[in-house]
Design a protein around this nucleic acid. Structure first.
Length: 752
DNA sequence: GTCGTTGCGTTTTTT
DNA sequence: ACGCAACGAC
């Protein structure tokens, strides 16, 4: 009966069994956080303390909600109904629909997406005659969102909290924007929380209703809560004369979302907010090897103001490889190194899906994608293309696939009853057995069942129409392929397909608030077809870019940002681009100073702790940023990793040498302060006046990226140079240095 | 409305 | 260098 408790270690068990009163579970990376949360949920239900509807369980993402729901069902051995389990926004929307009239909305209010929000705000700004160029709407949108994150309605904004945005009119515009939303019976994402908190604050009867309803509250990722989410939780959890049965799980060391309003202080303040709180630390890490934990712990120890937590290896077999730190010449070499290492690990029997390249910023993925393509290594970029994950897009693509390839059963099954064509379980299983018996695709099975009269009435008519529509489309495509017709034929065919099949109409008839957005998405999808000569080509592209049903399980290297990797784990993790200015990001440090730096360090900690077995950190001495090459010095985080857990590789000493010769700027805009390599005057400072000495043809020069070469011709400040290794290039004379014959110089560029 | 040109910005992302 | 957004022209 309580066997689920026996699979826990003592700390985990304490976290599950401390059911009454406030509890904070500080769960380090890889210490079984989700297991504790789900087991606790199940334990509350199984011990008879509450019914499913009396537990409020909150997560940040839909993915986390889904996972919790599934895992609770596994422990209970059955799916559970009537749960208040969901994201902050989903739960608030659910509550708000019940009490919408208190904030001047009706229960059928529309939830606006980012585009609508911005469009609306722009309208309001124009009414205020704001120069939209001088004060871009997204900036004000951000300010409004941050106010909402902090629970500030327009009337609560004091002049000191007002920004000077739009010449001091920001607060006023915010008020008008809220008024417009109300007129439209609409709420933006921030409003979902803001309104319900307002209601709970001002309507004791409503609050009391929820106090009675929820006996237990569970919160995931507490370190990521913003002020309004915290206020909401506190209102629901604090009840006069009753203990707060709130359990928050989180890790202050993994707080990486302050830039979108998250307040680490919420978790640091937990004991003050909920007096008598129990704190349980989960420190046994079952994920990673000892060196990886040592590296991560040593790094995060450089942060101040932590709650304090040490990851202990919890595995029997915790010894393993040291963390590799590679120094390379430039970003190309970095991509090459990572590619080679992936190939090597793959040869040794490691699966590609157990490898991940984690980058600081999205644009860094490109270099690795190109490398993967040349090496023929399958990869997937995660987080880049969420567009293709939307239901309506997947549906439409299923239509295209079913048309393009009649044997595509997965696609056909997805759309056979969408819109509803009266194909129920009976008809579907009849189709399945016929297809299996005759060893033909589903589409063919449909035709046969239509022909022999098994399908009757409405189903027959509807499916007959669907088959005819698909067939007409195929004919259209075939004609497009044969005739020398202009490219957009396949677009027309797809449009017709989606129209005639009734799929578009399905969404037009749909009265739900997001239906118009979905129609927009469908238009967008059709528009994307113009970039392809044929429908087949488009579908090929989509299948590569989309995490669809078939290749979700395929063996591919994962490529994503560090933020996107939170909560995931891999055997082998690659962490490229650890350079001052890039990681830690210069911009974060400029904007948020030491707080920003600490958040970057937490991001580094998150990165390292994703690895189960091996981690490779790398930095390049030269990186192409936008148009030109920039030199950069290794990230300070590299120096913060304890030597005993690290193994240096690549051209470390060469990079150190290069460091001494490097310019002091990373982006050409911000001076680097950490280390002060002295710049050699002349060539490495871009943007200065053209050099006065002329480089005559025949002069031997050195270029930071291309190496040594001979000037072939000079045109003003542009030189045509034949480089020894890089070949013929046109470069600006600012970027080359004259080399006298016989001077060897440090030819550090070619270290392989 | 739709197309083409110009100009600016360029980290991280969920709901 | 590149992409996207905003504006002006048809």
């Amino acid at each position: 009966m309580t066997s689920y408790l026996e699979r826990l270690n003592p700390e985990q068990r304490e976290a599950v069994e401390t059911v009454d009163g406030p509890l904070l579970v500080l769960a380090g990376a890889g210490t079984g956080k989700t297991r504790v949360l789900t087991t606790r949920f199940a334990h509350i239900l199984l011990s008879g303390r509450a019914s499913p509807g009396q537990v409020l369980a909150v997560t940040f993402t839909n993915r986390a909600s889904r996972e919790m729901r599934e895992r609770v069902a596994v422990i209970l051995g059955r799916p559970v109904e009537g749960l208040w389990l969901g994201t902050f926004h989903a739960l608030c929307a659910r509550m708000l629909r019940r009490h919408a009239e208190y904030v001047g909305l009706t229960s059928s209010f529309t939830i606006l997406d980012t585009d609508d929000q911005l469009r609306l705000l722009k309208q309001v700004m124009e009414l205020h005659r704001i120069d939209i160029k001088r004060w871009p709407a997204p900036g004000l949108m951000g300010a409004i969102q941050r106010w909402k994150d902090r629970g500030l309605t327009p009337d609560r904004i004091t002049p000191s909290e007002d920004t000077d945005f739009a010449g001091g009119k920001a607060r006023q515009i915010y008020g008008d924007y809220q008024e417009r939303l109300r007129q439209l019976n609409a709420a933006d994402f921030g409003d979902l929380m803001l309104h319900i908190v307002e209601i709970l604050r001002t309507r004791p009867d409503v609050l009391a209703q929820y106090h009675r309803a929820f006996r237990y509250i569970l919160v995931d990722e507490y370190q990521d809560t913003n002020t309004i989410q915290y206020l909401w939780l506190r209102l629901l959890a604090q009840r006069e004369g009753f203990p707060s049965n709130i359990c928050c799980v989180g890790d202050d060391d993994q707080s990486i979302y302050s830039w979108r309003g998250a307040e680490v202080e919420n978790i640091l303040r937990f004991e003050k907010d909920f007096p008598g709180a129990t704190i349980v630390r989960l420190e046994s890490n079952y994920r990673s090897t000892a060196p990886i934990l040592g590296a991560a712990s040593g790094l995060i120890a450089h942060n101040e103001g932590r709650m304090g937590k040490t990851l202990r290896p919890g595995r029997e077999d915790s010894q393993g490889d040291k963390v590799l730190i590679a120094s390379v010449w430039d970003s190309d070499e970095e991509a090459r190194l990572v590619g080679e290492r992936i190939e090597q690990l793959h040869r040794e029997g490691n699966t590609l899906s157990e490898m991940a390249i984690l980058v600081r910023a999205g644009f860094q993925t490109r270099a690795f994608e190109e490398r993967m393509i040349t090496l023929g290594l399958p990869y997937r970029v995660i987080g880049g293309m969420r567009f293709y994950e939307r239901a309506e897009i997947r549906d439409a693509i299923a239509y295209m696939r079913a048309m393009n390839q009649p044997s595509d059963d997965l696609a056909f099954e997805r759309i056979i009853n969408l819109p509803r064509r009266g194909v129920g379980d009976v008809a579907l299983s009849a189709l399945h057995s016929r297809a299996r018996a005759d060893r033909v695709p589903m589409t063919e099975a449909v035709l046969r069942l239509l022909a022999d009269g098994t399908l009757k009435g409405r189903v027959r008519d509807q499916l007959g129409q669907l088959m005819a529509t698909l067939e007409r489309g195929r004919i259209g495509l075939a004609e497009a392929a044969q005739g020398e017709q202009i490219a957009p034929v396949h677009i027309r065919v797809v449009e017709t397909l989606l129209e005639e099949s009734g799929y578009i109409d399905m969404w037009k008839r749909d009265k739900s608030p997001d239906a118009p957005g979905r129609l927009d998405n469908l238009k967008e999808l059709v528009r994307a077809l113009v970039d392809f000569e044929t429908l087949g080509g488009f579908l090929e592209h989509v299948s590569l870019v989309m995490e669809n049903d078939e290749n979700a399980g395929a063996d591919r290297v994962n490529l994503m940002t560090l933020h996107g990797a939170k909560g995931l784990e891999f055997d082998n993790v690659f962490l490229p681009g650890w350079e001052e200015g890039l990681f830690p990001s210069q911009r974060t440090m400029d904007e948020s100073g030491n707080k920003g730096l600490e958040e970057e360090r937490r991001l580094a900690y998150v990165g390292i702790t994703r690895a189960r077995k091996r981690a490779l950190i790398s930095h390049a001495a030269n990186r192409r940023i936008y148009a030109n090459w920039q030199s950069s010095i290794p990230s300070r985080f590299i120096d913060e990793i304890p030597e005993e857990h690290a193994e240096r590789m690549g051209s470390t000493s060469l990079a150190r040498e290069q460091l001494r010769n490097a310019p002091t700027v990373f982006s050409g805009q911000f001076p680097l302060m950490a280390k002060r390599p002295r710049a050699i005057e002349s060539w490495e400072q871009p943007g200065r006046a053209p050099r006065s000495d002329t480089l005559a043809p025949g002069t031997r020069v050195f270029h930071q990226k291309f190496g040594y070469g001979i000037v072939k011709s000079a045109d003003d400040n542009k030189l045509d140079v034949e480089f020894e290794k890089a070949g013929f290039k046109r470069v600006l004379d600012n970027y080359v240095q004259q080399v006298s014959e016989g001077e060897i110089g440090a030819d550090i560029g070619t270290g392989s």
